[in-house]
């Protein structure tokens, strides 16, 4: 074994230390004040949603004719709405809706969009042309308009809202996935996998998708914010979460009825939406930095 003996004399290569993904995440998170803030907001937001029954001072659905349209007081920090419901409690419970829509729809959209985009990008040809044209068609509508159109057909309701937001987001994911796939497909390691004898589905799942995951995940975090906003918009228009269930969108809508009496429901819910959307956007940037292997050093 001439080879073995000779090369074992090689000095052991001095390798760059393995950068730990977790420590890199921690570093990107806590090296800037803005991201610390964003992280804190998201943690509080999730905690509030999870522990809503423990935190909320009142039942969000409990109406009281005696306490209609009250201004903020020590008993009702954000006042009450036209049915005498405690706005703060409604906001706390409403965060659950926002969280659920905010997380489920982008994930579903990412999965569907990635599959469509990767298939189109990898196989090309007629498959690509058909998928791309459909995506272009959907992209031609602003997502809110698209959501309203679909919601108008399907009607409100939990799963319908999820479906509406998902469909509105799929084209964006598909387009990003397709473009990334086209780039990754040119990489020598894909040809290497073909040369080794790896089958096409395995190549797609093992070599293509992990390498296009970064932009998809980033898009997903950014669209958590959009989904929350979209759900609020739909609820505001009355085709999202159906009353009496609380959501930030319909709190604002209800608040409009008494805008000049008490602006606090609108201010409160608007502030919550702004904070959460902004925070998810900032975290999206962090995730992008961490996931990109090229700028990890």
């Amino acid at each position: 074994m001439a080879v073995t003996t000779e090369h074992s004399q090689l000095p052991s290569p001095s390798l760059a230390p393995e950068p730990k993904a977790l420590s890199r995440l921690a570093y990107s998170l806590f090296s800037r004040t803005s991201t610390i803030f964003a992280f804190a907001v998201v943690v509080i937001f999730v905690a509030v949603a999870v522990f809503a029954p423990l935190i909320a001072p009142y039942d969000p659905l409990a109406q009281s004719i005696l306490r209609i349209n009250k201004l903020p007081s020590t008993a009702n920090w954000l006042g009450t709405d036209q049915f005498g419901r405690d706005v703060l409690s409604r906001m706390i419970y409403g965060s659950r809706n926002s969280l659920i829509f905010g997380l489920i729809s982008p994930v579903l959209a990412a999965i569907c969009g990635t599959v469509l985009g990767v298939v189109a990008g990898y196989f090309g040809g007629i498959v690509d042309r058909v998928i791309s044209r459909v995506i272009d068609l959907l992209l031609a509508f602003p997502e809110l308009l698209l959501a309203i159109m679909i919601a108008a057909v399907l009607g409100g309701g939990f799963w319908n809202v999820i479906a509406v937001i998902t469909v509105a987001f799929v084209p964006g994911f598909a387009r990003v996935a397709r473009a990334s796939t086209l780039a990754v497909k040119q990489e020598p390691y894909i040809e290497a996998a073909v040369a080794i004898g790896v089958s096409t589905p395995v190549i797609i799942f093992r070599h293509v998708i992990p390498n296009i995951a970064a932009p998809i995940v980033v898009l997903m975090t950014l669209w958590v914010a959009s989904a929350i906003r979209l759900e609020a918009s739909l609820s505001f228009l009355g085709i999202g979460t159906q009353p009496p269930n609380p959501s930030w969108g319909n709190i604002i809508r209800d608040g409009l009825n008494n805008l000049f009496g008490s602006p606090w429901p609108i201010i409160g819910a608007g502030f919550a939406i702004t904070c959460v959307v902004l925070s998810f956007n900032l975290l999206g940037d962090v995730v992008r930095d961490v996931l990109d292997p090229e700028i990890s050093e």
Binding site: E187, P188, Y189, E191, A192, A193, A195, I196, G197, V198, S199, V202, R206, H207, P210, N211, P293
Partner: peptide, 27 residues
Amino acid sequence: QMIFQDPYGSLSPRRSIAQIIAEPLDV
């Protein structure tokens, strides 16, 4: 089998050395 020109591009960046070398064995 094939050996490629570009030692940087021809190895999947997200997989470990063991996974890369074992891939044909698994296939």
